[in-house]
Amino acid sequence: MKRRGIVLLAFAIAGVNLVPLWLVVKQALTPERESFAWPPTWVPHELTLSNFSGAAEAVPLAQGLGLSVGVAVATVISTLALSLPAAWLAARREEVGSRLDGVVVAARLFPTIAIAVPLAVIFVGLGLYNDSSGAGLWLAHTLLGVPFAFLILRAAFRGVPAELEDAAQLDGASPWMTFVRVSLPLVRPSLGAAAMLVFLVSWDEFAYALLLQVTHRTLPPLLFYLSAFGYPGLSSAVAVLMLVPAVVILLLLEPALRSGVLAGSGR
């Protein structure tokens, strides 16, 4: 039957998509030798948690985790601080908005490597290259986060009727109070979504992290090196650490993704 075929197909696609996730978890929980086995095993034969402690012994995992979280949280804060006022303005003044759009889209489309290489050279001069607190990386990640936050927030502010703000101002509220008391609460959901998305952008980011930090690494390059050095188990353990926030945020954002609000954020 045709309908049965469609349903089966949908489940088959979902199943195939789960394979990488399953293999990461499997490799993280089995000893290194099992990950090298030929033919490969699909279910764990021997379970162990030693890859997690092993990864912490092999690379500075705690520092990497701290740096990743720190840079991501700082990026969320700076990105929202830059984007909120500009997004409000762009929503209220179309002529400003279309110009801002152009600048923001340019930031979104420019190749990372063409910024990362010169930025590394500039940061060397400023003492921000390979900074132990990740300050340089934070500045670069903010550049990545701004387009997402700006576009989401501008769309949200557009949905707040200008009459509401005018009414509040007629009642004697200052523009600032109007923004904080009237507009901001109405876009809070989009603000939350933008914050989570920007967090993920920074958390997953690989290219800047590889070029701007060399001895103080965030999690993605640490994972890359563990994997490149032939430690499937240890690298999968780091991968599981990285997965947790990513999957939690996906589940939280799923309704927003469904509504199409975040589509095109193309990270």
Partner: peptide, 23 residues
């Protein structure tokens, strides 16, 4: 099903790529 379809995009890129390499 929809969550499963979105999953590859939600996995951090480096995680997805390293596991694909071992596949």
């Amino acid at each position: 099903l929809r969550a499963a379809v979105l999953l590859p995009f939600a996995l951090p890129e480096i995680v997805f790529l390293t596991i694909l390499r071992s596949i």
